[in-house]
Design a protein around this nucleic acid. Structure first.
Length: 258
DNA sequence: ATGCCTCAGCTCCTGAGA
């Protein structure tokens, strides 16, 4: 089973690129973030024609998440149960016997801001919900745009960016709360190229200079960890015309494709 | 340099992203 995550920064703009990418990389599951469209605008037919099922949770202008899958998704959950939120950030479902949770973590803007406080509350709520999900579904993948780096390896200039958003101790402690549940960063299970990032600012030729951050992650449960045989960042779509600022991340699990 | 890109929307500017 191949499972991928990609923040596409507007599905309206990026749909042709998503379809091209799926044709070249026919993954079993693709988790999308930042759809930036309402549910009625979701391009269901395009995915059906490409041979995929879809579940989506949209919102006007901002946020919005979806799960694209070869086989139908069941037991779909939208946002974190019990956590009141007017933003569409989470969609979870069971696909091929694996519990898949796609999340667009809050940005947080700046440490000390209201948005940062919201990010911290959201992360606490996510952790407590995922704790229960893991108890119910030992085979679980939590993937998406985390908007948090694990450590300096994930940061192009760790000195200049120390303590700034995505790189604060507070955010990393919350990320540690998720790994503390028994979730593992699939990417670091393998030797990786130096300076591997999943996001680059649109400005200042950041991609060309490889000035980026690794903030898109695929975390796997203990039951799945021994079955992960690869995890890579696909930088190619970042070279497209009108690219997303994020690149897709793909993990291969040694379980039969559903 | 609170900007440099990019996207959505009450669109010729603003808010937000990361």
């Amino acid at each position: 089973m191949d499972i991928a995550t990609w923040n596409i920064n507007s599905l309206t703009v990026r749909l042709p690129q998503v379809l091209d990418w799926l044709a070249a990389h026919p993954v079993d599951v693709l988790a999308l973030q930042e759809l930036k469209l309402t549910d009625d605008k979701f391009p269901t037919t395009a995915f059906t024609e490409a041979g995929y099922h879809a579940q989506w949770f949209g919102q006007k202008t901002y946020n919005g998440v979806a799960l694209i899958s070869r086989t139908p998704a069941t037991d779909v959950v939208k946002n974190i149960p019990g956590f009141t939120d007017d933003m569409s950030r989470v969609i979870g479902a069971t696909i091929g016997g694996v519990r898949v949770i796609c999340a667009y973590f809050p940005n947080g803007q700046e440490p000390g801001s209201d948005k940062f406080a919201y990010k911290m509350r959201w992360l606490d709520a996510l952790r407590e919900w995922v704790r229960g999900e893991l108890a119910r579904h030992p085979k679980l993948v939590l993937l998406g745009d985390y908007n948090i780096t694990f450590d300096d390896l994930d940061v192009w200039d760790p000195v200049a960016l120390a303590g700034t958003i995505h790189c604060t101790d507070e955010e990393r402690e919350k990320l540690g709360g998720l790994t503390g549940l028994g979730l593992t960063d699939a990417f670091r299970l393998f030797e990786q190229p130096e300076k591997s990032y999943s996001w680059w600012d649109y400005r200042e030729f950041a991609f060309r200079r490889n000035r980026g951050l690794r903030i898109d992650h695929i975390l796997v449960s203990e039951a799945l960890k021994p079955l992960v045989s690869a995890c890579v960042i696909d930088r190619a779509p970042r070279k497209n015309e009108r690219p997303s600022d994020h690149a897709p991340v793909v993990a291969t699990l040694d379980i039969p494709a559903p």
